[in-house]
């Protein structure tokens, strides 16, 4: 027997009583009368991100540059977004560590914790983490109340993980409290996040 067979047979041998899977249908997660308002509040407080409301007719590129006037290198592969670097075509992935602002797309917003579901939609996902600052585009209509709803959408969808086998929830900038519990934004990954809420 190889190790796999030995481990599996030990587990089967050592299992005594078995238990049924509970009915999760009875579990009702917290919901909000106005999930968008709750999402905005969580994003700008606990998550420590900025939020820009974008309406029809606004120039998204101008708003992004306005949010980061000091930035030099912008990176994105989203059609219509002006960028100096493209995570689909970048030669050495380490190049993305020089990016000032990475612009990416979120697909689900979660009101209870400001998480944004970001399925990998670019060749190099390093843009989501290595960029100094991150701009996440999200549609208002994509905001749900809680993680149960978010995972139900992910489970039902066949579009995520298809092109690239990775997806992540991001809630604000990278942070740490490892030195004397002092909260510091900008640990190893993005130091700042701006969420652009689009109609």
């Amino acid at each position: 027997m190889n190790s796999k067979e030995k481990i599996l047979s030990a587990l089967r041998r050592n299992t005594r009583e078995t238990y049924e899977m509970p009915d999760l249908g009875a579990l009702q997660g917290i919901t909000f009368d106005d999930p968008v308002a709750q999402f905005v509040q969580k994003t700008t407080t606990t998550a420590g991100a900025r939020l820009v409301e974008v309406h029809d007719g606004d120039d998204l590129n101008a708003l992004i540059r306005q949010a980061y006037p000091e930035a030099h290198i912008f990176a994105s592969n989203i059609p219509g977004i002006q960028a100096d670097m493209n995570p689909d075509t970048v030669g050495d992935v380490r190049e993305l560590m020089r990016v000032d602002v990475g612009i990416i797309e979120g697909r689900i917003g979660v009101a209870e914790n400001a998480c944004i579901w970001i399925p990998q939609a670019m060749r190099e996902k390093a843009i989501c983490f290595a960029s100094e600052c991150l701009v996440i585009l999200l549609r208002r209509s994509q905001i749900v109340s809680n993680m149960h709803e978010a995972y139900a959408l992910i489970q039902q969808s066949d579009e995520y993980f298809r092109q690239y086998p990775f997806g992540t929830f991001i809630s604000g900038p990278s942070k740490t409290a490892d030195i004397e519990s002092a909260l510091v934004y900008g640990a190893q990954a993005a130091r700042g996040v701006t969420v652009c809420l689009i109609d």
Binding site: N113, C115, K125, K175, A189
Partner: peptide, 17 residues
């Protein structure tokens, strides 16, 4: 840690390109 979520919840379903 008394947070509603960690900043990153990452799902790895296969190797990178």
């Amino acid at each position: 840690t008394g947070q509603e979520t960690t900043v990153y919840t990452s799902h790895f379903r296969g190797p990178r390109p």
